[in-house]
Amino acid sequence: MLKSNYSLEEGVLTVRLSGEIDHHSARTVREETDTLIQQKRPHELRLDFSSVTFMDSSGIGLIMGRYRIMGLFGGYLRVVNVPEGLEKLMILSGLGALKVIERQGEARESA
């Protein structure tokens, strides 16, 4: 089960995810998020992973796809509050190089 909660504030679209991200569950979130990006044109998409309890490579696909779409619209992506248990996968994916991943407790305050 994966739940998502969307909020838009000052051009920042925050998606709070909770539960397990796999190929099955990623689909709805992907569709809902992309619809909101197209409608609201946020300058930043913030994926909050604090309550994500499991993720496989489908989660990497989800992040990379949103990174691309935000780039197309001239905005950027931040993946925040990544739990310790998911770090191994994030590192393996090479997503670190995109500089969009922030660990749990690593609050980089946005201006």
Binding site: R30, D56, S57, I60, G61, L62, G65, K88, L92, S93
Partner: peptide, 15 residues
């Protein structure tokens, strides 16, 4: 087209 990262086998290997 499916947003697959191409990482499944790499994950199985390293996990």
């Amino acid at each position: 087209g499916d947003e697959r990262a191409g990482l499944g086998f790499a994950v199985m290997q390293s996990f």
